[in-house]
Nucleic acid binder design. Structure first.
Lengths: 167, 167
DNA sequence: CATTTCGTTCAGTATTGACTGAACGAAATG
DNA sequence: CATTTCGTTCAGTCAATACTGAACGAAATG
């Protein structure tokens, strides 16, 4: 059986694979999240994940381009090291927001098409409205979000249990 | 040159392709969004998008599984019709929320690993906290979201212009 | 019961994309 | 200037997946 830590790394791989990313993308991310070392060299990563140095190099650059990971160096050492970027999770959600806005823009283009029937136009407008509201919401959230002073045993957020809202 | 409507459908294809979905997935979605018809048959879809009936069938089922599209029928007609599901955009965002929660769960597992150094554990905890806060936020939003009475010329949401927050 | 008209399934193809090993260039080191 | 040690690039392989056409089954219709 796999050690819990290695199992977790595999699950990171599977999770991101679900969303269209390469499996080793998730594995590398997971590894950098749970490692105690301040950063890992390309070779360490390649060894730990049993992947080629070439793959490690490529993935590291991809993760970096997404602001999830950052390069770090040590004086007198020619190697590149990588670590999970500070606050990368925040940036990640922000980028999802941007994707929503891009989709919203597409929908807006739809709403502006000539010759649409009023109901169709209305539906597109209402979708556009929704996405804009979400955008504002997230935006405000980031405006106000602060790190908590000390994170205790955090209770998982209480989810509404299926609204069953009267309709 | 492509008609604006067809160009838009192509752009839907490209957009979703960007996020790992099949291109015709986005095209079909786009088509169903901008069509004035109350719904389209598999054959109409296949013809309009120049894809095989087999592809149309498969994609329609996939879109349906994601609650984006729904089947509809007419009495005395054996054909299946499809249309953009009412409120599908809301469900879509909700599913993204669930994905965030799943990731949060993975991170939580990380935070619970044995033998982690305090800084590592703290970082994971703080990420977990962040994702939980986002979850609550979105959840509350859905709790309160209502369709606007009449959607006017909607002004695009004012984004903060790069915080440039003092640090 | 033969025929038509649907949708789905299935085998096959073609394209994409993940991943590798080896070659390469750049920088240090002796 | 030869050697070592990095990272990246590139050609190539292998697996996954998008898509098709044809076959099929189910339901209607005559």
């Amino acid at each position: 059986m796999l050690a819990p830590r290695d199992k977790l790394i595999e699950d990171f791989g599977l999770f991101f694979e679900q969303y269209g990313m390469p499996r080793i993308f998730g594995r590398m991310y997971g590894l950098l999240l749970v490692t105690d070392a301040p950063h890992l060299s390309l070779e360490q990563i390649a060894n730990e994940l049993n992947i080629s140095k070439a793959s490690a190099s490529t993935m590291a650059r991809q993760l970096q381009a997404m602001y999830i990971v950052e390069k770090s160096t040590v004086p007198g050492d020619r190697r590149d090291y990588y670590r999970a970027a500070d606050g990368h999770h925040i940036k990640t959600v922000q980028m999802k927001l941007n994707a929503s806005l891009a989709l919203s823009a597409l929908i807006q283009r739809g709403a502006r098409l000539e010759g649409l029937s009023p109901p169709t136009r209305k539906r597109l407008k209402s979708m556009e409205h929704f996405y804009n509201r979400v955008a504002v919401l997230i935006d405000n959230f980031f405006e106000n979000y602060r790190e908590p002073e000390e994170v205790e045993h955090e209770a998982p957020p209480a989810r509404r249990t299926k609204p069953s809202r009267s309709r």
